[in-house]
Design a protein around this nucleic acid. Structure first.
Lengths: 189, 189, 189, 189
DNA sequence: AATGAATGAGATTTCATTCAT
DNA sequence: AATGAATGAAATCTCATTCAT
């Protein structure tokens, strides 16, 4: 009952940043320990393994994104408003913690397969969102699964664009335009 | 005068497939050699290191994508036609060689930084394409850099969607809808 | 708090002996680990690489030789006495630890270039010793740099002679004659 | 009966220079082939193995040194003259081909053990030379084996001194002084 | 005679993880 | 809880040598 959280947070933050920059395999336990100001053994007090640590971080972020979108999907505001809020929330997440976002971007293809199936994924939320809008006749009949991918791809690529110097921080500056594009995609069939 | 390099192609194909499935770090030299039917040392006659091999493959594909788009950008057909062709070409590339495409998708964030600057990147081509369309008054004034990212993100995410079982092969089946979405994004500002 | 490094000395001694017998390249990490009773990885906790280990050992011995001679150079005893002591000290060093001496002999041409310039080398000490003796009019004016090499070459070759079975252990048995030769070289110009 | 000598000499010279600079293990077949302007396989037309090549070169030089000294030992000129000629011949050999000399210096401890016993070694010649001088009452009774080592050590160290920038080229410039030192060592007992 | 692709065996090094302290 | 030495198991890479051409 004492205070374990102390170093645990340091370790996790250090790991996140290093994973975001060098990938999971490119990051060693020693690198994490060094940046967190602990020694290698200490890490195993809090996580079973390096992979376990990476997975925990990924799920945390991934689930966070899902919940973020879910909150707006369930809202009863107009379609345009909900889309704008979703886009803005996503881009705000990037501005608030670019490394966390990049971490997800970088390791997704390695860890996505292992995510627990009860976790709400962004794609699932978007798909449901589109299906409901169709059902409500807000937008024409269309392939919700496809459109969900298109929307997600668009928004994520804004982060990628910033990462590679093609777009500028803060990316929330692009919120309005991206929202408009999203709406156009859903309305125009 | 000596024996011709029969195994080079085998090695590169084996590497590509394994990289696409397990990532660069998740693929060992032994795995590549085994699949290519050579010994581990053979790889080093043709490439300086595993990383060098990965980089060579990446540039080859990456440049290929750039050239693909460039061909259509330069065309004098109507905007809609060119967009449709670009989208279709991209998605066809995936259907023709899903592993090659996935390889690029999977390793891009690790290798993108090191690409030679004279290589024509898809984003550059798209940006120029949009700027020219604006100049020609085909579409309203808009942020070409942003829109290029949005278009690219959309199309690439279709591949990701297929990879994770959300969309179906052949992805060229989505060409029409994706093209329409792309046009909508550019026209609607 | 963790366990103290019990094996470091074992590793270094094992390496020294093997280097002395088989050279650096002729000695494998496995050989060192085996003789030291550790696993191969253990070596890397204490030294960055095999070369680093060899270099550390070399500097230790090389500097030791320099200090050995320096002690006698600074003495205020008669020239003959100091020479005799230097020679004796050198040859004693060989009798006390032939492997250490042979190690230096064997690897010098590979590692000499990289020695830190602030390390007192035997040649420097001898050169200064001769220059001071000239300044004091103990011996005639002469080329100190050359004579330093001659003296060093003589003494080292005694060790070589023993190594190849031309001379006998203990080599301190040759101290008197070698000293006389050294004096003759300095006095007779 | 055609002309095999062509590339053989190139290969041997290339090997000698590389061995002198990097040692035998530090020199790869590929390095030799590259410098000689042939490919790796070509080397095996002329020598059974890299080691065989190194050994052949070493014996050639080593025997050459022995014969050089032997010629002067057998002369009927005064002792001083013969010593002066021996020393000069040795140092001239260095000036004429420093790399060949350094090669011997660098690899001697690795290859000396395997030299055919019928090869006339410098030490043997010098020992006999001193014994004969004692027998002829030219110099006092003394330990010929020891003195042979001292003489050899002195002269070789001149080369070492040049190699490490302590002495200057041409080293034949030191002939007179080294000869005087040699004589002093033999006369003074 | 020569080429250089390919082999085969091994060497160095890395690193997640364990465990005595 | 923490330390960091040591392990153990690979992974990358090197390179002398062989051999089909």
């Amino acid at each position: 009952m004492a205070r374990p959280p102390r170093k645990k947070k340091d370790i996790e933050r250090a790991a996140l940043e290093l994973f975001a920059e060098y990938g999971i395999d490119g990051t060693t336990i020693r690198m994490i320990a060094e940046r967190a100001g602990v020694t290698e053994g200490a890490l195993y007090r809090h996580h079973k393994s390096k992979d376990d640590l990476a997975r925990a971080l990924f799920e945390e972020y991934f689930e966070g994104f899902g919940r973020l979108l879910e909150a707006f999907r369930a809202e009863t505001t107009p379609l345009e408003t909900r889309i704008a809020r979703m886009v803005h929330a996503f881009l705000s997440a990037y501005d608030a913690d670019p490394l966390g976002f990049r971490f997800v971007l970088l390791v997704q293809h390695r860890l996505l397969d292992g995510v627990r199936s009860d976790v709400l994924s962004p794609v699932s939320v978007l798909t449901r969102f589109i299906e409901e809008a169709v059902g409500r006749r807000d937008i024409p009949r269309q392939d919700a699964a496809l459109k969900a991918q298109l929307l997600l791809g668009m928004v994520m690529q804004v982060a990628v664009g910033e990462r590679y110097g093609r777009l500028e921080l803060p990316v929330t500056g692009y919120s309005a335009e991206v929202s408009k594009a999203a709406v156009a995609i859903l309305r125009e069939v």
